[in-house]
Amino acid sequence: MNDEGGPIFRQVATLVENAIVDGSLAEESQAPSSNELAAFHRINPATAAKGLNQLVADGVLYKRRGVGMFVAPGAREQVLKRRRSEFADQYVRPLMAEAHKLGIPARELAAMIDRWEGSR
């Protein structure tokens, strides 16, 4: 996987979450197994299992004994809520830091966002 995105097990968890957010992994549907994730991402199965267990601990997935892992009801809303709360820190902070470095004031940044939104 990539070197930028922190520990691999977190990246695995994030990728599964992405599938939940974009709807390709619906609530109550079965999540990929650790062996499937390991083969697809070419990582150690123990690392993939750690990523899945993280999602179980977060309540995003739940285990059905002997069957596998499933997406918990309400998981999508839960992931969205957490990601929104992290948004400022993850995206706005580096944006502001770069803008500050280049001498772009905050109001000009806000105007840029408006123009960007209007041009879409």
Partner: peptide, 26 residues
């Protein structure tokens, strides 16, 4: 990876191609 996942066992891999195998390692 595929066979190890189905039949876990102890594997030691000596290599200079670290970049290629780093994600396989525990």
């Amino acid at each position: 990876l595929a066979d190890y996942a189905e039949h876990p066992r102890s594997v030691i891999l000596s290599t200079h191609l670290i970049e290629e195998i780093s994600d396989l390692l525990e």
